[in-house]
Design a protein around this nucleic acid. Structure first.
Lengths: 191, 191
DNA sequence: CATTTTAGTATCGACTCGATACGTTTAATC
DNA sequence: GATTAAACGTATCGAGTCGATACTAAAATG
């Protein structure tokens, strides 16, 4: 059964990612989870860069995430920025220091070593296949999809740029490249 | 850069595996790591079913692994069996109870839901691609490969069956389907 | 305006995990 | 063959993860 083989391979790759992250992180005194949070925030726009967003993405409780963030904040790798309109919200912005650190961690060295020598087309296909798998998995479980606005059914393009049909807010070019918490793929019927 | 996309997708899938394992495991009071150990042992032959083997596979220290194993042992999910020749070694054998438990966990439900509706050929291709990736990654980092004897360069077939060219021991059919710690893929020159 | 929901924090306890130290058995070296 | 080194496994400790629970504050709902 090849589904089991996919599971086994993913489990093993997951271990390698973790081992690699542990190694890379230990240089800076950071743990795998903390690196993952930074990587997530690096890809976020203002809809997803919150404690709740991180919590849903990682599948951890808000309490746990809150603790992780406290560490990252104290090391100057991210900045907490209260929302001006909704004062319950805190936006988590990765700092320049944080981004600099990430460059050494993503993509993991073993992936570069494994894929660099292959034709670019094969790597692209693998990336597409994995994204497909993710999409299918998240759809099946009705999970949040954590996609970028540009692939979202709520994203509308106007003559002045882009706009989120859900919140009504206008979106910048960088915005639509980033992860949104409310992201939903187009309905099947919308082709 | 599609390597980064591969990294991101793998990281996310890794999270899903973990979340799923946490859910499934909580029913039995088991943690993700403990399930992984069981899954590993399920695939092992006598060269790899040791504390050291688990330790290398998971990238954790022997001390950590030893503790995890103590829990699994006390719950009757595995059996410790001292080696008859080398009295330093302890073989870890998964019990029937352990195997029964695994069936509900592997493959993860979200993978089945995502892949079951697709053509079998596509899933097979994905499995092959992932195994390729794994193989390339492990080769590049000179890591242990944790492959089955049947794909190992030391495996020799004789008229009476199979034999490991490294240890000289003869191997049974079930043996060569399982993971070996000393596994090495054939040299490129041996094509 | 009362109630409910949502965002985030704080605290506690069970558990992970690496580091270290240790005992035992086997292999290596002289 | 005696000494030394290496390998396998265990035990203990402390820092840190992580879920559960309880809490405050702000916004949404009615």
């Amino acid at each position: 059964m090849s589904i089991s083989q996919v599971h086994t391979a993913l489990e093993r790759l997951s271990n390698l990612l973790r081992v690699e992250a542990r190694m890379q992180g230990s240089v800076e005194g950071l743990l795998p989870v903390q690196l993952e949070v930074l990587h997530y925030l690096y890809q976020c726009n203002r809809y997803s860069d919150t404690v709740q967003g991180v919590s849903e993405y990682l599948g951890q409780t808000k309490g746990t995430v809150s603790q992780t963030l406290k560490v990252l904040d104290s090391r100057g790798l991210l900045r907490k920025q209260p929302d001006t309109k909704d004062r319950r919200l805190v936006h988590l912005r990765i700092t320049a220091k944080g981004e600099k650190l990430l460059v050494n961690v993503v993509p993991a060295r073993f992936l570069v070593e494994a894929l660099d020598s292959k034709p670019a087309r094969e790597t692209e296909r693998l990336a597409e296949d994995l994204k497909d798998l993710l999409r299918a998995a998240q759809a099946a479980r009705r999970m949040k999809t954590f996609g970028a606005c540009k692939t979202c059914r709520f994203n509308e393009s106007s003559q002045s740029g882009f706009r989120c049909g859900l919140t009504g807010e206008s979106l910048t070019i960088p915005d639509i490249e980033r992860i949104c918490r409310e992201h939903q793929y187009p309905l099947a019927s919308e082709g």
